[in-house]
């Protein structure tokens, strides 16, 4: 059997997810040994439109970028969105909650009209997506796991329980007990609650679990002294798209 042909693409992003893949180092060489990488602009010259699996990073933020994505969808048998920007819109969505003309003027002044933009959106808002690998940036181990599953023709499984479960396993002290606030109760686990482990809080970058109890999260945040506006902002840092797509 021919090796599966794999391609990488990016839209509005920081390229952190592709960098995570490069950062696999020797493991990357093993992974690429099992496939033919036909397009990876960040790391190699040359390109082909003949591929089986396309990994797509970043959000769509301009209408003029849609045809490129449609083309990728047409060529790929399997389209995988990688990283929060691609799966849930990520931090690119922040601008959506401001007047877009003011956003453009703020950055480009009176020439703003030359700089096209529209509300940022995840890949699935433009084309059907076969698989989503969450997190900002993606987790290297999870990527390898998902990649291997795909090569075996299986659909990888991701947790559908909140980060709090990972967090308890990691034996962290809950940040609420220390007077901070956290999106862990409504966010999809699978990252080992790594941000809490590193002294921070969960910001919500893996997106909501399938049935988040958002009302109870809002109540808890309010109990910890957050204003309605601040609660909204916390939800909009990563999970704003679920608000507009409802």
């Amino acid at each position: 059997m021919d090796k599966p042909r794999v391609a990488f693409f990016d839209f509005a992003s920081c390229e952190g997810d592709q960098l995570q893949i490069v950062n696999l180092e020797e493991d990357l060489l093993k992974v690429v040994g099992a496939v033919d990488v036909v397009s990876f602009r960040e790391a190699m010259k040359g390109h082909s439109d003949n591929y089986d699996i396309a990994f797509v990073e970043g959000s769509i933020t301009r209408r003029s970028d849609e045809p490129r994505l449609l083309e990728i969808r047409k060529n790929a048998k399997i389209l995988v969105a990688i990283g929060a920007c691609a799966t849930i819109g990520g931090v690119n969505l922040l601008k959506n909650f401001q007047d877009l003309e003011s956003v453009r003027k703020f950055v480009y002044g009176d020439k703003f009209f030359q700089y096209e933009t529209y509300p940022a959106r995840p890949i699935k808002a433009v084309v059907p997506v076969d698989l989503e690998i969450h997190q900002c940036p993606i987790n290297r181990d999870e990527f390898v796991m998902a990649f291997k599953a795909l090569l075996m023709g299986k659909k990888p499984e991701f947790p559908n329980y909140p980060v709090c479960e990972d967090c308890k396993k990691a034996e962290n002290i809950c940040v609420f007990e220390m007077g901070m606030t956290c999106m862990g109760p409504v966010t999809r686990a699978g990252c080992g609650a790594c941000c809490v482990v590193e002294g921070s809080v969960c910001w919500g970058c893996r997106g909501f679990i399938d049935h988040p109890n958002a009302d109870s999260e809002r109540e808890v945040l309010a109990k910890y002294g957050l204003s309605v506006g601040d609660i909204l902002k916390k939800f909009r840092l990563y999970t704003g798209f679920s608000e507009v797509s409802k």
Binding site: F11, A12, T61, R62, D65, V91, N92, L94, K95, Q98, S102, V103, R104, F106, V107, Y115, T117, A120, W203, D230, K233, L237
Partner: peptide, 20 residues
């Protein structure tokens, strides 16, 4: 594609600026 970070920062808190 421009991502408009400077505009997006408006309204965000002191402890989020570096994260964003």
């Amino acid at each position: 594609a421009p991502r408009f970070f400077e505009a997006a920062l408006r309204g965000r808190k002191w402890n989020e600026a570096a994260h964003i």
